[in-house]
Design a protein around this nucleic acid. Sequence first.
DNA 1: AATGAATGAGACTTCATTCAT
DNA 2: AATGAATGAAGTCTCATTCAT
Lengths: 196, 196, 196, 196
Amino acid sequence: MARAVGVRRRPEPAGPDPGARERILTAAGELFAEHGFDATPTSRIAERAEVPKGLIHYYFRRKQDLLAALVERLPEEPVESERVVVRGDVAASLRLLVRELDTRTEASPLLSRLLWREADTHVAVRQALQRRFRVIVEQIRAVIEAALPPDPPGRDVDTAALLLARVVNHRHSVARHGEHDELDREIAFIARALQP
Amino acid sequence: MARAVGVRRRPEPAGPDPGARERILTAAGELFAEHGFDATPTSRIAERAEVPKGLIHYYFRRKQDLLAALVERLPEEPVESERVVVRGDVAASLRLLVRELDTRTEASPLLSRLLWREADTHVAVRQALQRRFRVIVEQIRAVIEAALPPDPPGRDVDTAALLLARVVNHRHSVARHGEHDELDREIAFIARALQP
Amino acid sequence: MARAVGVRRRPEPAGPDPGARERILTAAGELFAEHGFDATPTSRIAERAEVPKGLIHYYFRRKQDLLAALVERLPEEPVESERVVVRGDVAASLRLLVRELDTRTEASPLLSRLLWREADTHVAVRQALQRRFRVIVEQIRAVIEAALPPDPPGRDVDTAALLLARVVNHRHSVARHGEHDELDREIAFIARALQP
Amino acid sequence: MARAVGVRRRPEPAGPDPGARERILTAAGELFAEHGFDATPTSRIAERAEVPKGLIHYYFRRKQDLLAALVERLPEEPVESERVVVRGDVAASLRLLVRELDTRTEASPLLSRLLWREADTHVAVRQALQRRFRVIVEQIRAVIEAALPPDPPGRDVDTAALLLARVVNHRHSVARHGEHDELDREIAFIARALQP
DNA sequence: AATGAATGAGACTTCATTCAT
DNA sequence: AATGAATGAAGTCTCATTCAT
């Protein structure tokens, strides 16, 4: 029970700690999002993840690798169009799709903003985000076409998709989230333009 | 906290250097834009501005103040609507307006992106940018209304303005500039929706 | 706020250096005492302690903590009265006690003066020193009472103790040490006053 | 009335400012006393004295010279013994003398402490203070002798004087002022010892 | 005589990263 | 496999001091 005074004890390895890697990434994501990448010392990440500082560099040789790993974690697989399409009602379909996209991002809205913030200086991040942007444009286009009434006149679906993608992305990157009214009005506007 | 006791050697100031403040701001803007705020040491700013390091802190007590000063420099006065309105042609009017807005930002496209990047962590920057965003929305709305044919049915001008403002802002903040085709197509799309 | 982007070269730590902490404290004590707290850069401490500058901040987050640690090191346990009491001879007893107190302080006379110097601006230091002063008053009182002839008339032992404590403290804080004649004369004076 | 925009105006010398030197010294004394010599930038002194920073270095080439000048200002001329002597009552006499000495120092008790604090590192200060200490010892001795009953047995007046001087000085240098009871008891103790 | 602009030395501190264990 | 100790590079900022005017 007592501990000999003066004897330096090795801190006893404490055994394997599964989930440590995961905790590190979570902590890093939160802190980066909150204070920025540069302003977050690895030591603070270690604290929040409750791991020794050394372990971070054991899993991620450099701090930058944390960012890369964070990007990997972003859900990449597209929303299955069928799940959100309301045949004949473009506005409703898009609303559903956007809710779905939001949900994925909302998992960590700050993280999304963070990544866009770092995109300019970190190539890997930028590329991943641009890829994701293109996927979203494509998805919107698909949903619009699936929801549109069968006889397709010459509407500019491509532009509508890009437009909405920008709106969505704008919210996820720099604008403040939350105002769903505005978003819905924008969707309605675009939908109306597609079916006269 | 203190200075070592002893006699200082050669401060040797070289007399007033007008334009130094300006050079510092320019250098700071460029470097911040290129590498980010945190990753730019004041020493490098001094180098590029060709001033002694101390002068930077003489003009701007802390590094943050450089950011603030950079924001001040953004042109705030709105575009005079009359200059860009083409009566009866909403699309043309908006194209002109957007070109004008671009020009102002393009003065330092990187700077604009930088500021949006830092908005999350620097309150003053964020507020200034949000204010600017609102001004732009308002301007777009004004132009649309001035360009619209005289008999006004119940179109959603507000939403159209917000939509376009988002597109513009998206380009200035996170998207890559330059693809004017897409932008023009988006403008056309919105304009068409406004006059059936 | 940040670190320039780029790869660091050669940290190359050299393994545990036991005694480093101690060497740092010793060096700090000496230098502070010699030139003052503010006028001693941590870099000079590092030099004298023969440790890299970083190590100082590894052990003591801020420079102030060095002062605090220095105070901790002061011997706190009181002199055992019995060791110095010469029954019936107050002057002799006090001389012995003062010699003992001196010895403890003389271990680092400059350090003592330093601490009193910094007491005004560093609360922790001030409190520690005030505590020590009170202990000394108490000790002196105890010794006087133990040494006093058995039939105790109404002498003002308290005041005598305070008086001597002040003399001792005066020597340790601002006066120059060393002149034992004067001290002995003062002790004799006080002792005489106590036994007419 | 209007001022041409953009024209740089010399700030107009504002005419001679007698008392500026005095104000600088006062401000310096206060600030040094409050925060310490090293921790007080000349800029802050300038602020409080309401003079341009340059003026300080115009009057006092180096910061140290401010300390020296502060020492000069200390009242040096001794208290006239006759004013405080109560013939036949040593205690009363000493009480009066000490009150008088206090008054002089109390003019700026913090300043007194400051000077003792800096005495170790600034030779000029140290010498001035030591000189003053000797003057005080001498004064006390004179007062004792003047107050003592005419038939002088072999009392140790010198030691009594030194003792009291130490008490006084201890209060002025490191101890907290204010407790006059203790001081009076100490004076009484010493006085009693002088006249059995 | 007075002053604001300017300067450079250097102080403290933070931190990513490495190595021995 | 894991970790605490250790390092050194660099960053921000302060400030006494000087000079031109």
